[in-house]
Amino acid sequence: MSDAPSLSDLIDLQIRANGPISLATYMGLALTHPRAGYYTGTDPLGAKGDFITAPEISQMFGEFIGFYIVNLWQQLGEPKSFTLLELGPGRGTLMQDALRVAAKAEGFIDALHLQLFETNPALKAQQAERLGQFNPYWATEIDAVAEDPLFVVANEFFDALPIRQFVKGTNGWHERLIGLRDGKRAFGLSPTPIPEAALPPALHDSPEGAVYEVSLASADAMQRLGKRISELGGGLLAIDYGYAETQAGETLQAIRRHAFADPLETPGEIDLSAHVDFGALATVATGLGLKPALTTQRDFLARLGIVERASALAKANPAQVDTIAAALRRLTDVSEMGTLFKVFAATSGELEPIGFA
C-alpha cells in the first residue's frame, strides 16, 4: 500500500503554503495530476464510468465524422500525406468508426498519419487495440504534428480544459479562488478587483453576482492548432456542449458515477467540466485567418444523413431496431444531446465544411 499523500492532501498543502489557488489551477491538478489526476487513472467512460460520450452511443456518430474528414481531404485535392489528430480519443471508438468509413476513399489510408493526444494509460491501451492497424503515434503535445495538412477532431475535449471564474461585485469583478475554511476546501473571492473594461464587451453591464468563465487553455489550444492549420491547410472539428457567444453564466459541474457531485470534495475521483465558449474559439480562429462555423449536433448530423443511416441500419439489423432508434434520439433530440451539444469547425482557405448551413 502506497504511503504517498492523496491528491486532496497535496492540494491542501499547496494552499496552506502559498494561499488560495485559482479554479484553473485546481482543475489542472484534479484532472491531469501525473499520479492521481482523474484523466490519468482508470477508464472513466461508459456505463461503469462517470459519463457516456456520443461515439459510445452509436457507430453512426463516428461514421459521419469519417465522412466529414474525407470530404475536406478531397476538397484539399487529396494530398498524399496528411495528419489526422484526435484530442482525447477515449477508447478509440470514434476514430475506429470514422476510419472504417474513410478507408473506402481511395488513397485516404495510404496518405494518413494518425496522431492521438491522450494521457490515460488505460485508454491508450484500448486505442492501441482498436487503431493499431493504422500505426498511430501518441503525441505528448497537442501541436506535435508533421509539416502536412492537418485535420483535428476533438469530441468532448474542450469542456475538460481548466477555466477561471470571475464574479461581479460592487467595485468590479473578483476572481473566484479556492482556499481552506475550517480545514476544508471552499470557494472565496480575491480582494483585488478587475475593472469591467478589462473584460469582453458582452460582460459589461452584467448584474452584481454574475459569473464569467474563461478558459485560457482552450484559447491556447485553438491558437496553437489554428496556426498550424492556417499555415499547412486543413481544419478543426470540435463537438461539445457550450454556447455560441461569450456571455455570463456559471457552468462548472462535477460528475461521479453519472450523478452530480461536489467539485471540491474528492479531486482526482470526479469529472470536472464547463461549457465551451465557442464564440471565444471563433475569435481566435478568425484572427488566424480561418473560417469558423457553428451549428447544433442535431442539425449537423441531420444534414449529413443520420436519419437515413439509422433507417438503413434498422433494416439490416431487425433485432436492433429499438436500440438504433434510442441512439438516434439520444444523439439528436432537443431534450437529449441534440441542441445542448454544438459542432464547431475552423477551416483554412476555400474549404467549405459540410454539415453546416
Rank of each mutant, 00 (worst) to 15 (best):
W138R: 01
N120C: 14
L116W: 00
A98Q: 11
Y137S: 09
A128V: 07
E141A: 14
D97Q: 10
A125P: 06
W73Y: 07
V145L: 10
R130H: 11
A139N: 02
S58Q: 03
F117G: 09
M60D: 06
G77P: 09
K124V: 09
L72Y: 05
D110K: 15
Q75N: 13
E63K: 03
Q96N: 07
L85K: 00
T119W: 04
F64L: 14
Q126H: 11
Y68H: 13
A122H: 01
E118R: 01
L116D: 01
T83P: 02
T93D: 02
L94C: 14
M95A: 12
F64D: 04
T83N: 10
A125S: 14
N135C: 13
Q127P: 00
L94Y: 12
M95R: 09
E63M: 06
F61G: 01
E86R: 08
P89R: 00
G90K: 00
K80L: 13
A122M: 00
K80I: 09
R100S: 00
E78K: 15
Q126D: 12
L112R: 08
N71H: 07
Q126F: 06
A139P: 05
Q115L: 14
A139F: 01
A125G: 07
H113E: 14
Q75P: 02
F64M: 15
K80S: 15
L84Q: 13
L84R: 06
E106V: 08
P136V: 03
Q75E: 10
V101E: 08
M95V: 14
Q59T: 06
A125F: 07
G132N: 12
E56D: 14
Q115W: 02
Q127A: 06
A102Q: 10
P121A: 12
Q74R: 11
R100V: 11
W73D: 05
G62Q: 07
D143I: 05
D110S: 14
T119S: 14
F61W: 03
V101I: 15
P89N: 01
D143F: 07
T119A: 11
P89Y: 00
L99S: 04
E63V: 08
E78W: 01
Q127G: 09
L76F: 04
E129M: 09
I57S: 09
T140Y: 02
R100I: 11
G90D: 04
L99H: 12
Q59H: 13
K124Q: 14
R130I: 06
T93C: 03
A105I: 01
L94P: 04
R100H: 10
Q133L: 05
G92L: 02
W138C: 04
Q127C: 04
Y68G: 00
F82E: 02
R91W: 01
M95E: 08
A146P: 01
Q127R: 03
M60S: 08
H113G: 12
L112I: 00
L85I: 09
A102M: 10
K80Y: 00
D110E: 15
A103N: 10
R91P: 03
L116Q: 03
L76V: 03
Q74C: 05
D97H: 05
K104P: 00
I142K: 10
L114I: 09
D110I: 05
L131W: 05
L76D: 02
K104F: 00
Q133Y: 00
G92Q: 08
G132P: 11
